[in-house]
Amino acid sequence: MSEAAISIRGLSKRYGAGRPFALKDLSLDVMPGEVYGFLGPNGAGKSTTIRLLMNFIQPTSGSAHIFGKDIVKDSVSIRQSIGYLSGEVALYPKLTGREFLDYMADLHPPRRTGYVKELSKRFSANLDMKIRDLSKGNRQKIGLLQAFMYKPKALILDEPTSGLDPLMQEEFFILLKETTKAGGCVFVSSHNLAEVQRMCDRVGFIREGELISQQNIAEVAAVAARTFDITFINDVPKKELAAIPGAKVLKTGHMKLTISLRGDLAPLFKVLAGAQVAGISQQEINLEEEFLRFYKKGMP
């Protein structure tokens, strides 16, 4: 098994003695080629974790390594290989997008010249307007450009798609895929469950500074409730269907029924075998509900 790209061990943060832990004893690994989603409600400790990884704040205890280097002692060298985007993208309002990216490139020259131009085309970013005159979505694009322009080996992103239109979100997902395909890893915080479902391989759920659970997206999907839309020729066997263990009838109509079922599907097909079915279709699995279950599980 390859070494973790990001390795966090017992990382804690407390903003002053006597104050509660903003992050408590966090341990996790992000492997090369993996997109790790960090999920949690506002104030759960997502941004604290990211700011610790970027060495913007100092850990109270514990340690973390990125590509084997300590986030505190080797922070400057680590940043050679990191692309970062903060939750509230703060840029220089008086500069144009182009000037801003030139500034960032002066500080850390991109590995390939022309890549910034290529990226700005992909994101249809307006680089000639002053940043203060750009919409939130367009500012977010500039923020993404500065994070991706180095082709970093690790991306640390806080709510990256905030303000992006669906087309640009799609472009962003493609870019993430390209990064992971090249062996890079992504640590992304979000509270947008649909977004996490779309881009992550694995998710960690954090609540009140503590990691509640880590799940593989594929595993979550495997145990997730499936939803079927069934059309009958005659009567709807509603009672029998509702009696199936793990089933929940969501909607009934004239000779139509929508049912969600967690676990074994055999009892459903057994009931359907005794009825006259005109059609059956499965809805796309929505992990949102599954994620919410994790939140609720962790609730006191």
């Binding site: 940043r79 703060a90 840029l91």
Partner: peptide
């Protein structure tokens, strides 16, 4: 105050 310092310190600069 404007959080732009994070952009600078996200680069390899001490």
């Amino acid at each position: 105050r404007d959080s732009t310092i994070e952009l600078l310190l996200a680069r390899p600069i001490s």
